[in-house]
Design a protein around this nucleic acid. Structure first.
Length: 598
RNA sequence: GCCGACUUAGCUCAACGGUAGAGCAAUAGUUUUGUAAACUAUAGGUUGUCGGUUCAAAUCCGACAGUCGGCUCCA
């Protein structure tokens, strides 16, 4: 299993320098081949390779077909083993050097503003780029590289800027390391939840239903329902009260909450019905606040923890959709904790404890499979994005940071990632392909209580304003399912395996006994399937193994005559002998405990 | 939404200007099988949709839809 990138920050090692140089070789190759048709912008080394952005003049286009000739040119440059030399320049000289390149000029102006001195790197004598390095000593150090993909990317990462063309590649110190990397990526592809979703028959899409709108098959639904059951049980145990609220609301509700201006691009358009303007809800918070407000509350009731398995509708741009992990209708294990200010810290601690517990049961390791990100409001340069109240922000950020430290949670800070109404703790998971993704969040909110006049009666009999903690326990079920499918490569823990036991018949005459046995399993609350098709035992085993079913039981003459079962456990070639009743008790116990064992 | 690519039977793929093929799955029959693939047969397609070029289009061109890799955004 890969480590989270934020837990190892050794960016400036040799490999980094090598990749940085590979990116320059790419740039030089591009200039040699298409020098008069492109303007180079910039490109860094990354955790798994490098990329290079450039602008194209007129209607010149780079396509995948160009990769072969670019790679050939890069090989030439590497073979030439050109020395890479560093030179510090004045801004004035640097501007002269890059006078025809508006991107470099813009960059130089930023360097000038900071009062820094530009560094340039020469590859041989002809090619020079504005770059701080580090670099290899010469182009010959690049022993293995490959161009991977072509993409569009906005200049400075801003949608409003021009879209440049980006080429991704990777480089290693040896061919073997490159091969290993490519092999690893191919392995990750095999675990892709979209592929496994098809192979294991978990979910499907239909064009006519719409994009980003998956349907769960009976098997996929088992996983979903087991996860829901887990959430309901555990949250109830920890003092949450589950509610059901409407998926629609008047648009006024979101104007009042203040969500509207921030979210209107991701909301579905208003539906006019009679005199009302309704929208599909993009979040549940305001509903829960109205529920809270339906009657007065005493300080004795706090914290009030309102939870819901809540469907939410968000219009995501088509290019953002992806399998189950990015959809247009998702269902969140949502809750809003309404508490006194002095309870907030303890409540957040409790939430982190709940998250750790649930992740542990799901089989995820803290610090390895997931970690925390403290997302702060970068309030200095952007007053529009965040609600203005510096003192409240400071306080909230301090509380979240303290909780993370006291809980000894592995975390890193990320400015500019907060919600508009307050800072948050993001639960970051590492996917099998190495990408990091926000699974869900815990948010500290001092804005909504004001907007909605949330109140409780304190000890003195006076009204006081509470704090709201927005949180999820396992996130949205779609994304969590996608993550679990990939994490387990479809070999799920017994408790949420769609089929737990396959009962395979040897011959036709054993079918009846199979049915009887399967019914006994079902009566015990286990999910069993009978496989009595006219096929060889070997073929049934092969198919059942491919389906990653935890327990396989073959029924033949031997079993007709005895209460003993030869159970083939997933991942094992040999069978384990059980008394029937003992096997049922064993499996039931593991399911009850949500154990990872078989 | 933007940049790049892809879309052929339920699935995985082939055919790459001369009116579509295979394996698996499905169905029927034979076989009655003991822990990773029994045998035979049948059926399955206006090649994503709509237009265009051509004597002829799955194949070339265009539009649209969907999917994928990125960017932006995000749970």
């Amino acid at each position: 299993m890969l480590k989270l990138t934020h837990m190892k920050k050794d960016n400036h090692n040799q490999l980094w320098a090598l990749r940085h140089s590979a990116e320059h070789v790419l740039m030089e190759a591009m200039l040699r081949l298409y020098g008069d048709k492109i303007i180079m912008a910039m490109g860094p080394a990354t955790d798994d390779g490098f990329y290079f952005d450039f602008d194209v003049k007129g209607d010149f286009k780079i396509s995948l077909e160009n990769f072969a000739e670019i790679e050939a040119e890069m090989k030439k440059i590497i073979k030439e083993d050109l020395p890479i030399t560093k030179e510090e320049l004045s801004v004035k000289d640097a501007k002269k050097l890059f006078k025809d390149n508006p991107y470099k000029i813009e960059w130089l102006e930023e360097i000038e503003k900071r009062g820094d001195k530009p560094t340039v790197f020469w590859t041989g004598k002809e090619f020079v780029d504005l770059c701080a390095g580090p670099h290899a000593k010469s182009t010959g150090a690049i022993k293995a590289f490959k161009l991977l993909k072509l993409a569009g990317a906005y200049w400075h990462g801003d949608e409003k800027n021009k879209m440049l063309t980006r080429i991704y590649g990777t480089a290693f110190e040896s061919q073997k390391e490159l091969d290993d990397y490519l092999k690893m990526m191919a392995e990750a592809e095999k675990r892709d939840h979209r592929k496994l979703g098809k192979d294991l028959d978990l979910f499907v899409f239909a064009d006519i239903i719409g994009k980003g709108l998956p349907m769960l098959t009976p098997r996929g639904t088992v996983i979903r329902k087991e996860l829901e059951k887990f959430v309901l049980e555990e949250e109830t145990r920890r003092g949450y009260q589950h509610v059901v609220t409407p998926h629609l609301a008047k648009v006024d509700l979101y104007k009042k909450s203040g969500h509207y201006p921030y979210y209107k691009d991701t909301m579905y358009p208003v539906m006019k019905v009679d005199e009302e303007e309704l929208i599909l809800r993009p979040m549940t918070c305001p509903h829960h606040f109205m529920l809270y407000k339906s009657r007065p509350h005493s300080y004795r009731e706090l914290p009030v923890r309102i939870a819901e398995i809540a469907s939410q509708f968000r219009y995501e741009k088509s290019g953002e959709l992806s399998g189950l992990s990015r959809v247009r209708l998702f269902c969140l294990a949502d809750a809003h904790i309404i508490c006194a200010k002095d309870q907030a810290k303890q409540e957040i601690k409790n939430v982190l404890d709940l998250i750790d517990y649930m992740n542990k049961i799901l089989g995820l390791k803290k610090g390895q499979d997931y970690c925390y990100r403290l997302s702060l409001g970068d309030r200095s340069d952007d007053n529009k994005k965040y609600y203005k109240d510096d003192e409240a922000w400071e306080k909230a950020e301090t509380i979240l940071r303290e909780v993370l430290k006291e809980a000894k949670a592995p975390f890193f800070e990320a400015p500019g990632e907060a919600a508009f109404y307050g800072p948050k703790i993001d639960i970051q998971v590492k996917k099998v392909n190495g990408q990091e993704e926000t699974a869900f969040t815990v948010q500290y909110d001092f804005v909504m209580p004001q907007r909605f006049d949330l109140a409780y009666i304190n000890k003195e009999g006076k009204e006081e304003q509470p704090i709201v903690i927005h949180r999820s326990s396992i996130g949205c079920f779609e994304r969590t399912m996608a993550f679990l499918i990939e994490h387990y490569a479809g070999a799920f823990p017994l408790w949420f395996s769609p089929v737990q036991i396959a009962v395979l018949s040897v011959a036709e005459k054993h079918a009846k006994h199979c049915e009887k046995l399967a019914q006994e399993f079902k009566d015990a609350g286990l999910r069993a399937e009978v496989w009595d098709e006219n096929e060889t035992v070997g073929n049934k085993i092969r198919k059942a193994v491919a389906q990653k079913i935890p327990y396989l039981i073959v029924i033949g003459d031997k079993e007709l005559a005895s209460e003993k079962l030869a159970v083939r456990l997933r991942g094992e070639k040999d069978t384990t002998e059980f008394e029937k009743d003992k096997f049922i008790a064993h499996a039931k116990k593991l399911v009850e405990e949500r154990s990872g064992e078989l």
